[in-house]
């Protein structure tokens, strides 16, 4: 009986396989088709109750617009402060023992360093003349026999280096033997950068908290959705629906809520920037600055939409997996 028999059917009976395969496309196509349907079905469902869906999307939109708006504000302050770096300079006061020739030579050497855009040598005499002219204390200086002013090298660093490198470079200049004392005019700028760092961190924390809020908003909306469709879920389970099949429409609903929220947040920001544009241009004009308020940009916009979608999906997924298993036929 064990030896091969000509009439013995092959292990995978073709009749049986055909029966199973009829009307049953391969898994990938099947999933694709089901996903496409659920994707659009879930959108139609939201469209069927526009007010409720819109309100949820609006809450998500406002919640997302806040951190996004703060981020845009930070970006603009960064841009402004970068402009201020143009006025950044350090004064190196030379020792009195350094001769004007040595001073000029040193100035040339410094100007060849990386990260230095401009240098200017001010000899002791020039400094005195300048001071006499500008201060109005000229007569007082006549009383002093010796010229009390040191020679100075004014160094303007390349702003592209960033505050950290600029600071390091100026420190190394200050350590030169010819330099008596260095005065760094960027202390206030460093404070500004430090402040911006604090703000950046604050924006990050706010974004985290509000992102959490979006998760809760979507989760709660989906929870209500599930409650409203409890009977449907029960029936689907009786018919043999898998968890995945039941879960999918809710995940896509989360996706749509997130996307709609992201789009609304984007629109809110655009409107806000338009509203601020005029006053900011006026303010910049008063400072003789050509500064223009910049928006999210393409990358920022995509990131905003992406955040919305991911948070919507995640908020739904976290709720759905907990809630659905509780609904079983009785």
């Amino acid at each position: 009986m064990n030896q091969p028999h000509p009439n013995r059917p092959p292990p995978a009976s073709p009749g049986r396989a055909a029966r199973r395969d009829r009307g049953r496309p391969w898994l990938g196509a099947r999933l694709g088709q089901q996903h496409k349907r659920d994707f659009l079905d879930s959108l139609m469902r939201l469209y069927a109750k526009p007010l409720g869906s819109l309100l949820t999307a609006a809450v998500i939109g406002i919640t997302l617009a806040l951190p996004a708006g703060l981020w845009v504000a930070l970006k603009n302050v960064d841009a402004v402060s970068l402009g201020w770096q143009g006025s950044l300079q350090a004064s190196l006061f030379l020792r009195d023992t350094v001769t004007p020739e040595a001073g000029r030579a040193l100035t040339r050497r410094i100007s060849q360093r990386d990260g230095v855009t401009r240098t200017r040598y001010i000899s002791r005499d020039e400094a005195l003349a300048e001071f006499r002219e500008l201060s109005g204390f000229g007569d007082a200086l006549d009383i002093v026999a010796d010229n009390p002013l040191p020679a100075t090298i004014v160094v303007q660093p390349d702003t592209a280096l960033g505050p950290m490198k600029i600071d390091a470079m100026l420190r190394s200049l200050a350590a030169l033997p010819e330099v008596d004392r260095a005065q760094m005019d960027q202390a206030w700028l460093n404070r500004l950068y430090a402040m911006l760092d604090v703000l950046r961190r604050a924006v990050f924390i706010i974004a985290l908290l509000l992102g959490l809020a979006v998760l809760f908003i979507v989760g709660n909306t989906i929870r209500l959705d599930i409650e409203n469709r409890r009977e449907e879920i029960r029936i689907l389970r009786l018919l043999g629906a898998t968890d995945g099949f039941i879960r999918r429409p809710f995940l896509y609903a989360g996706f749509w809520y997130g996307l709609a929220g992201g789009v609304l947040a984007w629109l809110l920001l655009v409107v806000a920037l338009l509203a601020l544009g005029g006053p900011v241009r006026h303010l910049a004009g008063l400072y003789d600055s050509g500064f223009v308020l910049s928006g999210l940009g393409f990358t920022g916009s995509m990131a905003l939409l992406g955040c919305g979608i991911v948070l919507g999906w995640l908020g739904s997924a976290l709720t759905v997996s907990r809630r659905l298993s509780a609904i079983q036929p009785r």
Partner: peptide
């Protein structure tokens, strides 16, 4: 135990949908 927000056709089609038919 019908799904009342779906048509007669969609109700009857559900078991086949669950099996992933074309």
């Amino acid at each position: 135990s019908l799904l009342y927000d779906r048509s007669v056709f969609d109700n009857a089609a559900m078991p086949l949908l669950l099996r992933g038919m074309r």
